[in-house]
Structures are given as structure tokens and as C-alpha cells.
Design a protein around this nucleic acid. Structure first.
Lengths: 172, 172, 172, 172
DNA sequence: TTTT
DNA sequence: TTTT
């Protein structure tokens, strides 16, 4: 249950290949950086300008496995999720904050997304927390994160839980 | 023009009264913090849990004036905008990053939004960059930021432009 | 799994009390009409103008029960869902089409949403298709439709399945 | 100014080439049909199922010209807009209703969207109502409908204004 | 039919 | 820091 709406919609391209790690539970965590950009002409000089925004997106569990396997540098992707700002400790012991988009839905827009036979049965899908990394299911071109409580699946939200290595010490 | 989609939709409550400042151009800049929260029951203990997310939202120009005048601590609000991560220098000279939602649309959801005679003519609305702070127009309950290039209206995007005081040294 | 994105976001007020019916399976179906409006000044005459758009929104199962019980005429509500155009037969035997928003998430924005003790455990929530109407669970102020295949839960999508009475012969 | 939020986000493919017409004012009107689909496995039989939803999208003015020129059958596109239900008269004199998405933003997702030198200066863009069809500006890959009052640019909203030919007698 |  |  939510009090309020916290929704992000992105369409952009990956700046790097995804990075997938696994939680002790076996659940996957995949991080990607997605670029969106704006271009315009400077009003004074008439020069074309561009500003690129980089979005740090994190996928969990099944979505993380799919993202890790099928996205790559340059992939164009639709992502829907919510904002989450994490607090972490810099090398200097100071508090830092990183804002990420926790993805709840993802869709590849490249046309290279035809990943075989499919067979994804959403209704029968069960939470992958206990799933060993190697037991990946059939991938799909579009997916939606199964509804579940963030804290159960996302150790990062409790930064003192021994998973510091998932959220490394670079802010972005 | 944009390459990609960078969209945020929030419905939440202000944690504090808005803070409005003015740029040398006369354009207003209003910052607010908006809370969204999730509640759930812990699967093991059955205890109710809550996580609140705080969103830093920034309004520019006309929208900034309206937000500054009509929103207040506790106000429930709909905000649509885009993500922007700013780089800034901490006291220690280290780079820090702050992610904000640059609002392009805002709508009060409190019912206390009846702000007088109205008279807002969207089509005839002209950019408020040169507008002196005291020359505020009639407020409205709902508005949309006039389309304009961010860089022209948002000095914060170039943090070395002498407006450091707009984006103070606390990350959030 | 979806090919493409089909998403609607509404914030508006109910024009009438909700109407709830039950499917033979016991699943609830609630229909509401939600108004959104635009106002502006006529460029020629300067006269204030208004246009109201009415949205037909349909909730299923658990969401339908909550909507039916807690929304009422005048309620302000956030709804997220997807578009669905249904074909039906007019009295004259001619095909008609009605476009609805099938809600997947709903949130009351009235402040009158304090509906008691709560206790909604999203993770432990099970599909209400077989649930008898009288066995309603504790309501909540905000909810999300449990992920499930539309066709399984929404007989209206197959208008020849004997549920014609759910989608009566008025277009809107 | 809007009372409420009326927002649609689509990512899908065109089922046909766009159809562009011109209003007496010279403003363009382009209609497209966009498909989104869902696939799933039947819970009983395990058979793969698919449901395709067709969305009627209408673009006005500059956006209409761009859509008409650069989209084609099969194009994958992001569209943002609002819902509008129009009333019209069937051959039999009976009232019919058609729900469309009035696009306010569009973005091609095909990679075939690199349409030359660009030069689109959003800030300096002026409303194209009086613009003759042949005076089309440079196209862009992504655009946003300039803010303006719908009624001024969209004769269809007033179905008795002599533009019945824009909204022909097929419902969808 | 709502809301302001 | 809000809200319920």
C-alpha cells in the first residue's frame, strides 16, 4: 500500500552493459545507466546545445535477470519504476545520497528483443528470492516486477544489513 | 527537443513550507520536499512497516511563484516533471550529486486551492524571466510550465554561473 | 507480458456513486465516471470556457470492492490503468464501441480516506475471483490490482460470454 | 488550466500509414492507429493467448505534419496525450462516441528517425494554425505540441462547425 | 454526472 | 519534514 504516487517513466539508451550481482538469497540485482537527452538551439548564439541526463536504474530478482541477460550497451529501453534515495557512507565517512529508479516494468524497444520461445506465465510466476542464480527462467521481451514488498527483496534499503557491496562507493 | 523520455509523476505531501528565491533575471525558483510513502506488514513478524521517500522538487518562473504562494507544509499535490541530477561541491571540495524533479506541471489536491478570481489565460501567458518578483500574476489551481529551454531559465544547471546560493550545500 | 505500453493516469472527481456488480465467479466489477476538465479564456471574446471530459473507469475484483465501498459521488481520486475498447451490440443490432480505463491502481485523494483499522497485507493478498461478495476484506486507502491476466478476471472482454448484463447497452 | 489530470502514455506500432488532412485554417490533422498487445498463457489450457488493443491517436498542427511525414505503417512510437471522447452522428442518425488520444508529445523509436539537420528551436516556435500545408518546417525526431487551447486548434471538438468531414462516420 |  |  502506498500513500502517494512515486512514478518514473524513462525511455532511453544504456550507456554501458548492465551489471548483475546476486544477493545471498539468490535474488539478482542489476544496475544500468540510462541516458535521456535534450537538444535545443541557444537563443542568443543559435548554436545547437545538448544536455544528457543519466539515470541510475536498478532491477531486482526476475527483472534483474532479464535485464542482465538481454540489455546491453546502447539498448533502447522503456523503464517504469519509482524513485528511491539511498544514504551511504563515502570514503571520508561522510553521508552521501544516491537517487535511483527501482524498476517495476521494463520493455526493450530495439527489435532485437525477440528472445525465443517465451513461455512466460505471469500468473504462475513465483518470487525468485530463493532462486539460485543459475536457475534462470525463460526470458521475455516485456515484464513486470511481481508485486512484493521492497524491503523483502531489496536489501539496499536497509544499508546496515551487510550488503554494502551492492551499493558501492561511487555516487552514480 | 528530447531524445528519450524523462518523466516523473508524484502525488504526495509537502514536508515543509516552500522556499522561494529569485534569480537575477527576476525569475523565481521554488524548492519543496514532497513525501510519498509505502506501508506494508512484515512477512515474518506481521508488524506494520512504513517507508517514506522524500522528493526534492524545484519549480521555476511562474510555476515557482504559484508554488511559493499557494503550497504550504502538509499540502497534497500532484507534480509532473523530469529528473535532473546536479553536481555540486561539498564543503570539503568533493563532488556531490543531487537529484531533483524539475516540475513542469503542478496541481493542488487539497480543496483549499480556491485562490480567488482566476483569470489565467494560458495562451497569452508570456515567460516570466524578466518579471520582477513583486509583479506576480493571478494564481491558479493548476498550471503548466510554459515550454522553454531549461538552460535559459534554470541557471542551476550550470553550477558555475554565480548562482551557487540557489543550490546550497546540503545534498537534500 | 505486454508488447507496448498502454497506460492511463487520471486525477478527477466521480460524477456519480460507483456501481458494483458481481460476476458469477464472485468477483466484483465496479464502474465509475470520472471527470477531468480544462478551463481557458476564449482568445477572441475573452470569455471563460470549460470543457469536461468524462472517463469511464472499471475496477475488478478486490479493487472493485474497495472502489464500490469507499468512493462516492464527488470523490477525488487518482486512477492508473489501461485503455480497453469493447465492442457491443446496440439495440438496433449495430456494432458500438466503448472505451474504458481498466484500473490497476487507485488512490483516494479526499482525506476522507481513513477507513478503519486497515491491515492490508499486499504480499499475502490472494486473488478474489472465487470470493463471495459478502466476504470483503478490510479496505485500504490505496491499492494496486494484483497482477493477473485480464481475460481470466474480466469476462467483459469476451462480450459473448454471458455477461452482457455487465456492460449494458449505453455507450457511456 | 486543467482541473484534474488526463494523461495517456502509449508505446506501440502503427497499424497503417498515417492519414493527414488539413483544416481550413491550414492546420494539419493526422490520425493514426497504434497497437499495443498483451500475451499470456491460458491458466487452464496453457495455450498462449494474445489480445491487441488499437488506439486511435490524433495529432494537430505541427505534430500532425511531423507524424504524417515520418511515421508509417509498422513504426514504433511513443505517444503522450490526453483522452477525448467525441460524439458524432451515425448514418442512422444515432449518437455514437469515439474515444481518441489527442497527442501532445510524440517520439519515434525506430532508429529510422534521423531526419536530417534538424534546426528545431522550440522556444521560437510559433503556432501553425495559419500555416499553409506546404510550408512545413524541418522535422524532428521528438517533439512536443506547443501549448495552446484545444478548441482553437481542434475543430473536431465542436462537431457542428462544418468540419464533419474530419471525423468520418466510422467509429474507430 | 463531478469539481473549482 | 508530510500524510494516514
Amino acid at each position: 500500500m502506498a500513500r502517494g504516487i512515486n512514478k518514473v517513466i524513462l525511455v532511453g539508451n544504456l550507456g554501458q552493459d548492465p551489471e548483475t550481482k546476486y544477493m545471498p538469497s539468490g535474488g539478482a540485482v542489476t544496475n544500468v545507466s540510462i541516458a535521456t537527452s535534450e537538444t535545443w538551439k541557444d537563443k542568443q548564439t543559435g548554436q545547437p546545445q545538448e544536455r544528457t541526463e543519466w539515470h541510475r536504474v536498478v532491477f531486482f530478482n526476475r527483472l534483474a535477470e532479464i535485464a542482465g541477460e538481454y540489455l546491453k550497451k546502447g539498448s533502447k529501453v522503456y523503464v517504469e519504476g519509482s524513485l528511491r534515495t539511498r544514504k551511504w557512507q563515502g570514503q571520508d565517512g561522510q553521508d552521501r545520497y544516491t537517487t535511483e529508479i527501482v524498476a517495476s516494468e521494463m520493455q526493450m524497444l530495439d527489435g532485437r528483443g525477440d528472445m525465443g520461445s517465451g513461455g512466460y506465465e505471469q500468473g504462475g510466476y513465483s518470487a525468485p528470492q530463493q532462486q539460485a542464480p543459475q536457475q534462470r527462467q525463460q526470458p521475455q521481451q516485456n515484464y513486470q516486477q511481481q508485486q512484493q514488498r521492497p524491503q523483502q527483496a531489496q536489501p539496499q534499503q536497509a544499508p546496515n544489513d551487510g550488503f554494502a557491496d551492492f551499493d558501492d562507493d561511487i555516487p552514480f
